[in-house]
Amino acid sequence: METILTISNLNKIFNKRVHAVKNVSFEIYKGNVYGILGPNGSGKSTTLGIVLNVVNKTSGDYKWFNGNLPTHDALKKVGAIIERPNFYPYMTAEENLKLVCKIKEIPYSKVNEKLDLVGLIDRKDSKFRTFSLGMKQRLAIASALLNDPEILILDEPTNGLDPQGIRQIRDLIKLIASQGTTILLASHLLDEVEKVCSHVVVLRYGEMLYHGSVDGMLSNEGFFELKSDNNTHLKETLLNHPSIDSIKEEEEDKLFVYLKDSLEANELNKYLFEKGIILQHLVKRKNSLEEQFLQLTNKN
C-alpha cells in the first residue's frame, strides 16, 4: 500500500516542561480514514500542527509520501482545516473560494465542483455571514479540497455543531473517502471515530496507547450476559473455566462474564449444561469502542 505519511519517534516539549507529544510513531496509508482519538490535552492538535509544518518538533521525524518530496512541495498535495473556518463575511461562498483559487493558483472551475460536493451549490451566491456553523464548516472543507489533495486533515471537524450538522459532516467525510481521498481527523468523540474511521491512533497525555484498525481495537474477546435460576452456583462454576477472566453481577440478576481467551456461546452453553446448569439467558456481546477506550486510558 502507498504510504502517505510516516511519523517516527515524534516528540514535542513546550517550555522545557510540558511533554505534549511523547515518542509517537505511526504510518498512514492511502485510501483509509484515520482518527487520532484522545481527550483534550492528549497531543492530537500538536501532532497535526507538526506534520503540517506550523509547530516545530522537538525531536523525531516525519515524512510525506515516502520522503520523495520536500515538505513544502508535499504540503501542496495536502488539504487541511485545523482552525475555525475563516472567510470574508460579506463575500459569497463562490467569491471566497475563487479568492482561495487565485492565491493557490487553482482553476476557477474547481469552485462549483467542490461546492456541489459539499452540498452548497444552491447557496453559492449567499454571503458567508448568512451561513450556519455547519455550512461554514462544509465551505471550509470545500476550500481544503480545491487542490484535489491526496489527504484531507481535519481537526475536530464536528466541534460545536448541532446533531444535524454533525451528521452532514460525517456523511461528507464518508463521501470524500469513497472517492479515494485519504482522511486524517483528530477527535475526542468516540462515536465520531467509530462511525467514520477505518483506523485509529489513541493518545493520552501525548503518549500513543494504540494504533491499528478500528475493527482490530473492537475485536477483543467480548463478554457474555448470563442468567440461571441459581446465579451463585453459576458464578462458582464459571470461575473454574480457563477462558473466563472476571465476573460482575449487574442489573436484572444477570452475570456479566468477561473473557481472557476466545470462547463461543455454544461452547460455554455446552460446558455449563454438562455441569448441570440450564441457562435462562445467554447473550454474547462485543465491547464498544467507548469501553475499549476507557480500558486503555484508565491504565496507569
Rank of each mutant, 00 (worst) to 15 (best):
16 K>Y: 12
44 K>H: 06
299 K>A: 11
73 D>G: 01
284 K>M: 01
28 I>A: 11
106 I>F: 12
15 N>S: 13
93 A>E: 11
128 F>T: 13
59 S>Y: 07
32 N>R: 11
275 K>W: 00
177 A>W: 07
161 L>C: 06
135 M>K: 08
82 I>H: 08
100 V>E: 12
274 E>Y: 01
251 E>H: 10
159 N>A: 03
284 K>H: 14
157 P>I: 05
184 L>T: 04
260 K>Q: 15
237 T>N: 11
180 G>I: 08
69 L>C: 05
189 L>C: 04
29 Y>D: 07
42 S>Y: 11
180 G>L: 07
196 V>R: 07
53 N>I: 00
228 S>E: 05
144 A>H: 06
199 H>I: 01
268 L>C: 00
214 V>Q: 10
160 G>T: 08
187 S>Q: 06
102 K>D: 15
297 T>S: 12
39 P>W: 08
7 I>T: 05
3 T>S: 10
253 D>N: 15
290 E>C: 04
209 L>H: 12
41 G>T: 04
228 S>A: 15
12 K>A: 02
92 T>M: 06
250 E>V: 15
241 H>K: 00
141 I>Y: 13
219 S>N: 15
178 S>N: 12
127 K>M: 13
6 T>S: 15
190 L>C: 11
109 S>P: 01
2 E>K: 14
291 E>D: 14
5 L>T: 06
214 V>S: 11
158 T>D: 10
134 G>C: 04
46 T>V: 06
299 K>G: 12
198 S>P: 02
20 A>Q: 10
287 N>K: 15
60 G>F: 09
212 G>R: 12
1 M>L: 13
126 S>V: 03
86 N>H: 12
122 D>W: 03
57 K>S: 09
205 Y>G: 09
148 D>H: 13
223 F>K: 00
164 Q>G: 00
140 A>G: 15
186 A>V: 02
201 V>M: 12
113 E>R: 05
77 K>H: 14
124 K>S: 09
100 V>W: 09
294 L>V: 13
92 T>E: 09
220 N>G: 15
243 S>D: 06
31 G>F: 10
14 F>V: 02
191 D>G: 10
262 S>A: 14
251 E>K: 14
242 P>F: 00
221 E>F: 09
102 K>Y: 12
211 H>M: 03
157 P>A: 08
281 H>K: 09
220 N>H: 08
138 R>L: 03
283 V>M: 11
157 P>R: 10
168 Q>W: 04
297 T>V: 15
68 N>Q: 14
24 V>S: 06
45 S>Q: 08
238 L>P: 00
216 G>W: 11
86 N>V: 00
75 L>T: 05
123 R>F: 09
156 E>C: 03
114 K>P: 01
183 I>D: 10
62 Y>I: 00
205 Y>W: 04
267 E>K: 07
126 S>F: 11
89 P>Y: 11
84 R>E: 14
89 P>L: 12
